[in-house]
């Protein structure tokens, strides 16, 4: 028995040429995407593969390569300066993520509730992101310079001690974290704000009637519903914090006493000042591995592994 929907009143079936034409039309979006994809993957793949090859070779100043296997890796992992920079990087990343996500969430919630001048404030909040890393660092130097810096000017005015912010290892590290957050928070805020805006406001009204307090609403309603965006912001802040280089270089140049010498800064020192491309590339592979693994963990926890998120879509 032929279903009713299959019966075509006098319409002839599609010819092979028409079917082929339909097929081609469905291919168009893929045809438009593929060149860009190939280009991006090609450039990235070439750089990563090149880096991995360099890390397995010793390269002299004439760029002659000698295969040395894992020697560069072994040397680097035994290097106390690397161990110290890796440890600092981990502390730097964890502090930046904690502070950065907390600030981003706070700003996103604030901007979500801003009624008057909404567009203006949202636009304004992105400005730090458009300022280059070097300019950010210079600005922070102005703010935290020991004599004549804004912070010490205010502290002095209040009769408080005026420390040497960029001269003290711990304080310099804190200033570096602040500068890094200043740069990365706006974009993370934008991602979280996008998430907040997808939540139906009626849901908040329902939660109010159901008796949820502000904190309960945030924990039970808002957070679970923006979990994927939280994952994406975490990828962003982790990636930026692991890879940050220009801000640190211009702010402290890794000092004082190597207190802010993160892996990325040490990589620059080894590869471009000591011209040891092999060991420099090992550090690139280390950073890449950290970033990739963390991103996958975030995606697994916040996006793909979340049964509730999938169910909600």
């Amino acid at each position: 028995m032929v279903p009713m929907s299959m019966i075509q009143d006098g319409a002839p079936p599609l010819t092979a040429a028409e079917r082929f034409h339909d097929f081609l039309q469905r291919l168009v979006p893929y045809a438009l995407v593929i060149p860009g994809l190939v280009f991006v993957l090609g450039v990235l793949g070439y750089a990563v593969a090149g880096g991995v090859v360099l890390s397995l070779n010793e390269t002299d100043m004439f760029l002659n390569q000698t295969f040395v296997g894992l020697k560069n890796y072994i040397d680097i992992f035994k290097d106390p300066r690397f161990q110290s920079s890796l440890w600092k990087t981990i502390v730097f990343v964890v502090s930046s993520i904690t502070l950065g996500i907390a600030l981003s969430m706070m700003f996103a919630l604030t901007l979500y509730h801003v009624g008057f001048g909404r567009r203006f404030f949202r636009g304004l909040s992105l400005v730090p992101y458009f300022v280059s890393g070097i300019a950010t660092a210079v600005m922070f130097r102005f703010i935290f310079t020991t004599s004549g810096g804004f912070v010490n000017y205010v502290l002095g005015g209040l009769g408080l001690p005026t420390p040497s912010w960029l001269g003290d290892p711990v304080l310099a590290f804190i200033v570096a974290v602040l500068a890094n957050c200043w740069f990365m928070v706006p974009f993370a805020t934008l991602i979280l704000l996008g998430g907040l805006q997808t939540i139906d406001r009626d849901i908040y009204d329902a939660a109010t009637i159901d008796g949820a307090s502000g904190a309960q609403t945030f924990r039970r309603i808002t957070l679970p519903l923006i979990k994927p965006m939280m994952g994406v912001s975490l990828i962003w802040v982790s990636y930026i914090s692991f890879s940050t280089f220009d801000i640190i270089l211009a702010l402290t140049a890794g000092g004082p006493l190597r207190a802010t010498e993160l892996v990325s800064v040490y990589m620059y020192q080894i590869a471009f000042l000591q011209l040891d491309f092999g060991q420099g590339s090992v550090l690139m592979v280390v950073l890449l591995t950290f970033n990739t693994v963390l991103s996958l963990v975030y995606l697994k926890i916040f996006v793909f592994g979340d049964r509730r998120y999938k169910a909600a879509r």
Partner: peptide, 15 residues
Amino acid sequence: GIAMVFQSYALYPHM
């Protein structure tokens, strides 16, 4: 002592 049913239902989608 009220309860409300919304036009959009306003169910918690993740629950």
